[in-house]
Design a binder for these strands. Structure first.
Ligand SMILES: [Mn+2]
Ligand SMILES: [Mn+2]
Ligand SMILES: [Zn+2]
Ligand SMILES: [Zn+2]
Lengths: 144, 144
DNA sequence: GAATTATTTAGATTATATCTAATATGACAT
DNA sequence: ATGTCATATTAGATATAATCTAAATAATTC
């Protein structure tokens, strides 16, 4: 949507606004589906200019380091990515691995004593269970 | 330590107490270092009987499914494993990826309205930042 | 003890991510 | 405009993590 705003946020982070990097960022901002690197690579290559796999991974790394993108590790599956827009939590489906946004609310921080010499950057709350699609009864008997 | 208790918990979960599976479970119970599958594989093979890599992965999968072991996905690194003893949260180091236990406290659940048709199994709270070792000033200038 | 089922195994295979080193691009000083 | 230099991109190779395969072994049931 706001091409200039994307350009600005990249440059504010000391990153050049290259076509490839812009395409990754724009794609993440207009989707809330938490795509994998492979999905992003495929998506940005449906429009010119072409971007290589290494560049897609490099740019995702840079964007995460710059704090513009969040990486979500899912057990046994490829990492998923998420433009950091409004704050929210994540629901991860035990069965299909999909990551869904959940309304944000404040999380109590640990007692400072329990942190010791660690430096806390953030508290991340992850909900786990079955997504809507996987929770439906859907004849589990027939399939098993 | 309590060999019979381990045997019981495996069998209560419908899993045979094989030497290989027992070794994985016992190793996880006597370490709180959140080892990777490769580290567990290596550790259990320092004592007889030998266990193959596939068996180590198979058993970890079975133990996680049975709810006896927790798997912790860390971005860009191998998964780590943890016998589920007393409840606790996790601190994951941004820099070295180490997973450390943190004192448990209750986490507020999401408003039921925001769950929709999803089925919630658990809320997981993850702290991120720098572990004690990585937080130390340690002449970062000299090394870079 | 034969049949059945669960488990283990070595090695191949897949999936995911990173590295390499050659090339291209953009910023900026002249 | 042109040269310089840091940054970014690229194809393909490589590394790492995890799973699959099919045959062998071990335990359980009949
Ligand atoms: Mn999200
Ligand atoms: Mn733990
Ligand atoms: Zn699902
Ligand atoms: Zn650390």
């Amino acid at each position: 949507m706001d091409a200039e705003a994307i350009k600005q946020s990249l440059e504010n982070s000391g990153l050049r606004c290259t076509p490839q990097r812009y395409a990754v960022m724009a794609f993440l901002m207009e989707h809330n589906r938490h795509p994998t690197a492979a999905e992003i690579f495929e998506a940005v290559n449906r429009v010119d200019p072409r971007s290589s796999r290494a560049t897609t991974y490099n740019n995702l790394r840079d964007l995460v380091q710059a704090g513009l993108v969040r990486e979500v590790a899912v057990e046994g599956r490829a990492a998923r990515f998420d433009a950091k827009g409004i704050r929210h939590h994540h629901f991860i489906c035990d069965r299909c691995g999909n990551v869904e946004d959940m309304e944000w609310y404040d999380v109590p921080r640990p007692a400072s004593g329990s942190l010791g010499k660690r430096i806390l950057r953030e508290c991340e709350l992850i909900f786990r269970g079955l997504c809507k699609k996987c929770a439906l009864p859907r004849a589990s008997r027939k399939l098993s």
